[in-house]
Design a protein around this nucleic acid. Structure first.
Length: 505
RNA sequence: GCACCGCUAGCUCAAUGGUAGAGCAGUUGACUCUUAAUCAAUUGGUUCCCGGUUCAAGUCCGGGGCGGUGCACCA
């Protein structure tokens, strides 16, 4: 213990050394930042090598020291802020001897603010010639390898903050996610929608087919679920006369976890009175194209080696036509429950508990693999769509589409069913499926039927999984890589971390 | 839930069943234009855990933990 190398102990010793020089790294409360690294790189892109001009303006940068290259009476350091990193040039001649000694006590990971003019070194690197600096926080933990960063996937998820520090592309993805959502709001707001917030704690988790998380209210002493969709509440607001509403919110589904599923995820749901599914389709493709352009920089996103073009208009493909085209299957085979189960057998797919389930499995197998470029698949069978309005000239199908790209479902939209009697019958039918063993079928929400009885205007609605959209636009193939803190099983007790028993000096 | 793969120093990775190693980080020193700085010296291990086989286990076997991928599940 006496001679064992101890990186954290060494850093604590450095902390004491700073304090002995009258610098307490944890006493600073603010620092006036006047520039970010990326801004300076652009502003001084054409600067030629040489010492800074007499009248060169001083800038103040703040961030984390990512590397230090000491060279006697000159020190080079890289300071990273949220935009990029920028080289600091510290020379004894430009500072007091005391300040220079303080800088020599700093190390990789520490957070400082630095002031000085920008110049370009002989080696051609744009740099801040430091005339003054403040220590803003000391890092007591050693950072991972400066070249390889943090590779261990598990550690990256569990300690995302370290991942963000040392793996710049991760920070870029998370910033892109933030911008995608912000840009989405801007676009939607510009079309006259109100953003609303509906309950996440509900007594009936409806609006989708999924198993909910269960919880309990102490005050009311009743069981509660976390919502699995926002749909039924948002449509109540259309009944209430809000006309155009949307919610970007967290949804919880107590189901499997894999590359494309996290138990909590973010969904946009949006409803517009007096629109039908065709109106929604064009709104949908305009939104996608806009996001791709403004956030991704181009209408084309590279995903799994495919160049996905979000240039409008997207391809339109009928649901039944798709089966005909890719599998040679007929309408009669698909819309008949018994024939459909035979098809499952023909394709070697395990038994399904219901007609709707069977259709989904078949679609997944036969059609989905072909949907690379953005495609609206429209005209879903009514058995698959308990909340969608039937087609006027084909009552077995609904005015519903799903948007696919790169074999992933990106959006689901339909003209909303507003006939309360039809809605009631479909809920009753679902109740039978639930009784037959389909766990994912939600319990009927009878108050929703009552709401429809007050009168829901013709309305189109859409749901877009934000996480998968971000995956698509940032080229990530795992949902965990677009979530800041994906759910991880907790480590066994004691395995958690070093339990630092050091107290004495 | 099932299958496969992974887990070795703070980080990235080595090690035909035969003394656990390297680079980076750390520590000490030198250096006034470096940028994976360089040079010299140097520290560092419950090989995820428990048990077994063996003269000998990081390595083989059994059980467990955590993670990743695939399948199942998830309209």
């Amino acid at each position: 213990m006496a001679n064992a190398p101890d990186p954290i102990g060494a850093r604590r010793a450095r902390l004491e050394a700073l304090r002995e020089r009258g610098v307490d790294p944890f006493s600073a409360t603010r620092f006036e930042v006047t520039a970010h690294a990326a801004d300076l790189s652009v502003r001084y892109a054409d600067l030629t090598s040489g010492p800074p001009a007499e009248d060169a303006p001083e800038w103040a940068l703040a961030g984390r020291i990512m590397s230090v290259r000491g060279q006697g009476k000159v020190i080079f350091a890289d300071l990273a802020d949220r935009t990029a990193s920028f080289q600091l040039f510290i020379r004894l001649d430009n500072l007091s001897a005391e300040a220079f000694e303080v800088f020599r006590e700093l190390e990789r990971g520490d957070i400082i603010g630095a002031r000085g003019p920008v110049f370009r070194t002989k080696a051609g690197e744009l740099s801040l010639s430091v005339t003054g600096f403040e220590v803003l926080a000391k890092s007591l933990q050693p950072l991972p390898d400066k070249w390889h960063g943090l590779q261990d996937v598990e550690k990256r998820y569990r300690r995302r903050y370290v991942d963000l520090i040392v793996n710049r592309p991760v920070l870029d993805v998370m910033i892109a996610r933030s911008r995608i959502i912000a840009e989405m709001r801007r676009f939607i707001d510009a079309h006259g929608f109100f953003e609303v917030e509906t309950p996440t704690l509900v007594t009936v988790a409806g609006g989708a087919a999924a198993r909910p998380f269960l919880t309990h209210s102490n005050a009311l002493d009743i069981p509660l679920s976390l919502r699995i969709a926002t749909e039924l509440y948002l449509k109540r607001l259309i009944v209430g006369g809000m006309e155009r509403v949307y919610e970007i919110g967290r949804i919880w589904r107590n189901e499997g976890i894999d590359r494309t599923h996290n138990p909590e995820f973010t969904m946009l749901e949006l409803y517009a009175a007096f629109w039908n599914v065709r109106d929604m389709m064009s709104f949908n493709e305009d939104l996608m194209a806009h996001l791709a352009r403004s956030v991704h920089g181009s209408e084309t996103a590279l995903y799994r080696g495919d160049a996905i073009s979000f240039a409008t208009p997207f391809r339109r493909l009928g649901y039944l036509e798709a089966f005909e085209e890719y599998g040679g299957l007929s309408r009669d085979q698909l819309l008949d429950a018994d024939a459909c189960h035979h098809l499952l057998h023909d394709f070697g797919i395990p038994e399904s508990p219901s007609h709707s389930h069977a259709l989904d499995k078949l679609f997944e197998r036969i059609v989905e693999p072909h949907l690379i470029q953005p495609t609206f698949v429209y005209g879903y069978p009514v058995v698959l769509s308990p909340l969608a309005k039937r087609m006027k000239d084909d009552p077995l199908l609904t005015e519903r589409y799903e948007l696919f790209a790169a074999n992933m479902e990106l959006a689901n939209a339909f003209t909303e069913l507003n006939d309360p009697d039809d809605q009631r019958r479909r809920f009753e039918l679902q109740a039978i499926e639930k009784a037959a063993g389909d766990h994912e079928v939600p319990p009927p929400d009878w108050d929703f039927v009552t709401a429809l009885e007050y009168g829901l205007p013709p309305t189109a609605g859409i749901g877009i999984g934000i996480d998968r959209l971000v995956m698509m636009l940032t080229g990530n193939e795992s949902i965990r890589d677009v979530l800041l803190f994906p759910l991880q099983r907790p480590l066994p007790p004691g395995d958690d971390d070093e339990a630092e028993a050091e107290e004495q000096t």
